[in-house]
């Protein structure tokens, strides 16, 4: 019993170590974090301006609602980018720094290692995207009088379980392909969002894309969060989006861990678990 509690305590401390390391990195690269935030703001502005552009060129639409809908899409895109980046880039970064060998020969379990990175990605992603949402909403004078932010946050939290699971799959790519693996993480992010209605309703897509959308957690996250923020839908009203996210999350984490374990075994067999490829 004592041995088991000691092991659990050890793994809890190790998980804290993963979060702590990423916090140190954010602190030490503070200027770059600011630069990336500015880039994300600029990128989001270009998307949200589309709503005003359509009106200015003679189109008829509810500009504020459309701008808010685009903003939610851009914010989710940014959030997913941060979660994937923390999971995928950290492995790639460790390869580059050479610390990957020390991390992978330490006695922290791989699930704890990956969950720690995912936890940091979620916490940091929430802070960054909350700031992004606030800056853009203020810039456009958008108000959300009906919004149920608690329901939106709950949806994002539950969706994050699936996002972390998918991120675990992409995190193994730099182990298998040191040169291009990290970029494949961005491709996965784009593919996930293009089928999920990031800036448009899912039903405008071809049938085969709509079929894929049903297994994408981003579909339910985007639909539910838009309903909560734009229409004030509460937890009960977004249950139709919440339960698929719970199911997908229950599948995504074990699947992500299994894929990562298989990738790690491949890397160990072929001598790729080292710095510089």
């Amino acid at each position: 019993m004592h041995v088991v509690s000691g092991a659990v305590r050890g793994q809890a401390i190790a998980l804290m170590g993963v979060v702590e390391r990423n916090a140190y990195l954010v602190k030490r690269y503070g200027f770059w974090e600011l630069a990336f935030f500015v880039w994300t703001v600029a990128n989001t502005l270009t998307i949200v301006f589309i709503a005003r552009g359509i009106e200015a060129t003679g189109g008829r639409l509810d500009v504020d609602r459309q701008a808010a809908s685009l903003l939610i899409g851009a914010v989710i895109w940014s959030y997913l980018g941060i979660v994937f980046e923390i999971l995928t880039e950290t492995v790639a970064w460790e390869r580059w720094e050479g610390t990957i060998e020390y991390t992978f020969m330490a006695p922290l379990s791989r699930p704890i290692h990956l969950i720690g990175m995912g936890a940091f990605g979620v916490l940091y992603g929430l802070l960054r995207t909350a700031a992004l949402f606030a800056v853009i909403a203020l810039s456009f004078g958008l108000a959300f009088p009906q919004a149920d932010f608690a329901a939106a946050l709950l949806l994002l939290a539950v969706a994050s379980i699936s996002f972390v699971g998918v991120g675990m799959v992409t995190a193994v790519l730099p182990l298998i392909s040191p040169e291009k693996g990290a970029q494949l993480g961005f491709i996965a992010q784009g593919l996930l969002l293009v089928v999920s209605g990031v800036y448009y309703p899912v039903d405008v897509m071809p049938g085969w894309m709509q079929a894929i959308a049903t297994i994408s957690p981003a579909t339910y996250a985007l639909h539910g969060i838009r309903a909560a923020v734009l229409d004030g839908a509460g937890v009960a009203a977004v249950w139709g989006d919440l339960w698929p996210l719970l199911v997908l999350g229950a599948v995504a984490i074990p699947a992500g861990l299994a894929v990562f374990a298989a990738g790690e075994r491949y890397a160990k067999r072929h001598g790729k678990l080292k710095r510089n490829g």
């Binding site: 305590r9 050890g10 401390i13 170590g17 702590e20 991390t103 330490a106």
Partner: peptide, 16 residues
């Protein structure tokens, strides 16, 4: 970019 103390601290956490 991390200091010696920061590198050692997180590495030690991995060992509980």
């Amino acid at each position: 970019r991390l200091s010696a103390t920061e590198n050692l601290a997180y590495a030690a956490r991995f060992y509980g």
